[in-house]
Design a protein around this nucleic acid. Structure first.
Lengths: 374, 374
DNA sequence: TAGAGCCTGGACAACGTTGTCAGAGCAAGA
DNA sequence: TCTTGCTCTGACAACGTTGTCCAGGCTCTA
């Protein structure tokens, strides 16, 4: 069974004896058709090796390893001894192949380095851990192709379930997977063109409340800087902005809105533009944490005070001067809810896909309560 | 391995139903020795199914799926058609079993939600991706037992390699794995009692330079608040603090140092203590990002100005009043270096374990340049 | 037209594990 | 003594894939 071409391998020094008859095994060579895959990293002992060493059958080892009943203490001891001596570790790949489930779930998000996704990912991990599953994750970098590539790679690994923060807007490629029973929950943004569970923050309501807060403090010329509207959250937050303005009867000038990728350069230019000109904005609502950080920098350079409310909380927001008022979403709750729903699907207690919306929370710290200043 | 707390038990699913007939399984089957693992989520097509549908042999499907040569375009078309029609996706578990490599690596860190580990994790992921591998990660929550449990679970999955930010200080449990060829790199802290690759920041030098910076600005009574000294980084930073003080000929009072878990409550008390009393410190050196954040809060409440240098950079540190001077380590570089070393091990180009130390960088922003104020 | 060589396709074993089932050993009861 | 029933153990097939090897058909050359 072990490749005779390998160099010194302690595990290979067993005397070639037929363990039933006790006879030496004759070099009959019954037509070797296969070669062990070259393994320059050394071979690991298998249950068969353990069984041989302990002088028991293969299945008995399996029983001991899995804590199944029906093994005498004495036999168990012998097997355990062999396991320890050989450093045996069960090969879960083979186990998975046999059992059909992998006890692992996949998480596809945008960027693990983004402070918003860290706690989300951790929350998913904790739930997975409570259910005995491991977490495989990958970053899509906001690229739909990469998202698909990742998701399909995870499916090829036969993860039991998927938590996806989608980058793309067409997820029909997941249809065979769903049909095959891969539990799937989308988070933060809904799936595109398929019917699937989704857990969201109340982006619309949060943004509307945040903007209404500014309006309540006397602002009328309020800017909005957000992400590309093809991203669901960005579109919803923009909708919230528009709704708040409409509710207050304030017509919105096009020059007050900036939508696009949220790299610092563009955001900075956008902020500076809406702060200059004949009718500059007196307040800005920012569409996500990265935008907020950039705008804080821009505002710090301005001579006059400009009010600010940001979507997403940011660390140290309370220590800035003024403190940054934000619409906070609970990233951990998003992750936890999604993961719990995933395992509910796997338990079979869930039938119909649902859309769950978590509330946001307005945290006032000063920047959103500044009065308009012309 | 891991314990399950709910009815979803990934490894123990069975429904006594014959999946071909849909009938409950009755113990009358004479010849059937095995039962297909119950799969209430429907069965996925296999290469065999694809082969049957395309009217070709099994291996031909394998060839098409893997882009191997030796298939006529016409045959390939037929196979591809069947694949699409059935929604076939290769089962990588089986592939792994056969090939011996999993194309996945494990990352065990302390807490994915910590802003320090996000970029590190992302960097590891990028390198893994470049090598065609997926990343499985888990958080140890600074618990040695949980670290071991995670590492062994990853080994059972037969990850090709491990990147570990150790929580414990005895890693002899990894010896069989190392011997079996699991590539392993430790990051941020060295392994305990085994010889393994490790990538570190220059914690000692960074802390020494940071404290020397405070000394250069006239401080003599300098406090140090750090993590438990059993954590290598904490011990090294403390050593750096002591070295800088010793170099300047300043004797260190015990009351200036506080070491222990870095929860906000303890840190706050520690800071307040060293700021009161007959001989209060005029400057504080903080041992990690979480400590720094808490201390910033405490200092904001003080009437006098206290200088501060923190280990680890923090977001928005430049926007606070004053800006926070920090000793920055490059988390992404740590992750990248470790991952690259891991794949070098897998390539077989690496023989001997090494210790790599990355430099830190002092970033002056104001808080570290405040003069002493009594 | 035969022979050599290439191209394509398929049969088969093997990877390491677990489910099934049957057999061995043994004690208690008829 | 012979069942009967129970406990413990091991042989065997199967999970879905890939490596090896062989067969058959084809082309090309002599």
């Amino acid at each position: 069974m072990l490749d005779a071409t390998s160099s010194y391998n302690p595990m290979d020094l067993r005397i070639p004896v037929d363990d039933r008859t006790g006879q030496l095994i004759v070099p009959e060579t019954p037509r070797r058709t296969d070669r062990r895959p070259a393994n320059r990293y050394g071979n690991r002992p298998t249950m068969k090796d353990v069984a041989a060493r302990a002088g028991v059958g293969l299945k008995t080892v399996s029983r001991v390893v899995n804590g199944e009943p029906g093994v005498t203490p004495e036999t168990e001891r012998r097997v355990q001894e062999a396991i320890d001596a050989l450093g045996f570790r069960r090969n879960d790949s083979a186990r998975v192949l046999r059992k059909g489930r992998t006890a692992s779930i996949g998480l596809v998000l945008e960027d693990l380095a983004d402070p918003f996704y860290g706690p989300l990912s951790r929350a998913v991990e904790e739930v997975a851990r409570a259910h005995g599953a491991l977490l495989i994750n990958g970053s899509s970098a906001e690229d739909p192709d990469r998202e698909q590539e990742l998701v399909l790679a995870l499916c090829a690994r036969r993860v039991d379930g998927l938590v996806v923060i989608p980058a793309g807007d067409d997820h029909r490629y997941l249809e065979p997977e769903l049909k095959a029973g891969v539990a799937t929950v989308f988070v933060d943004r809904p799936a595109g063109r398929i019917d699937a569970d989704v857990v969201l923050s109340d982006n619309f309501g949060g943004a509307r409340d945040g903007v209404a807060h500014l309006i309540a403090h006397g602002h009328r010329r309020i800017g909005f800087i957000g992400d590309m509207p093809r991203i669901h959250t960005a579109a919803e937050r923009l909708r919230g902005y528009r709704a708040a303005m409409a509710d207050a009867g304030i017509p919105v000038a096009d020059s007050w809105m900036s939508l696009g990728i949220t790299d610092p350069g563009r955001v900075r230019r956008a902020a500076e533009e809406m702060l200059s000109g004949p009718e500059p904005v007196t307040a800005i609502f920012t569409g996500n944490n990265r935008v907020t950080v950039t705008v804080i920098r821009v505002l710090a350079e301005q001579s006059r005070r400009v009010a600010l409310v940001g979507f997403d909380d940011i660390e140290l927001a309370d220590l800035l001067q003024p403190g940054v008022t934000v619409v906070a979403q609970d990233a951990a709750a998003l992750g936890r809810t999604a993961a719990e729903r995933l395992f509910a699907q796997l338990d079979g207690t869930l039938i119909k896909p649902e859309r769950i919306e978590l509330p946001t929370r307005l945290i006032t710290r000063g920047s959103g309560e500044l009065p308009p200043e012309d």
